[in-house]
Design a protein around this nucleic acid. Sequence first.
DNA 1: CCCTGATTCGC
DNA 2: GCGAATCAGG
Length: 178
Amino acid sequence: MTAGWTDDRVGALKKLWLEGQSASQIAKQLGGGVTRNAVIGKVHRLGLSGRAAPSQPARTATTFRTTRPRPAVTTAQTPQPSAPRRLEAVQPKPVQPAAPAPAPIPDLPGTATVMTLGAHMCKWPIGDPSSREFSFCGRRASEGVYCVEHARVAYQPQVRRGSKESGSDLARSLRRYI
DNA sequence: CCCTGATTCGC
DNA sequence: GCGAATCAGG
């Protein structure tokens, strides 16, 4: 049964992607036979691209541009010019001094936006990533990208893939337990 | 060789 | 819309 992209799965995908999970990790967690290619493809189709938390150090240099694959197509299709993809139409919004807190959200509003999100702020996504009201938890990240509470929620009983740990596996182990 | 995401293109 | 194949880089 090939599971299509249900709303439920898309939500999980968005969440995990913005959490900084890699496509392969997300694919693994989603299960259902989805591959990392499927995840990446869906992510792009959804309009997501840049994430707030890169998975591994020194990676994603390809995010800039380049990637001009020339598979030598037999037919000269349409020379589509560069389209203004890349989202993030953020506006210059100065931080408000003494904000009167107009939104009494009982669930604690994520005061951190993509711009104001500091390196040591909890990157737990709050709300719809597509919405402009989307924000992050913003509390102090204990060790990794989340605060203690969110880290606990994010990294639950996660089964590992391999049976032995060594070298680079250590990084993945740490990431799982941040 | 491992990994990452990006893109293209056939389905 | 979907995802395998491929590309490009670390």
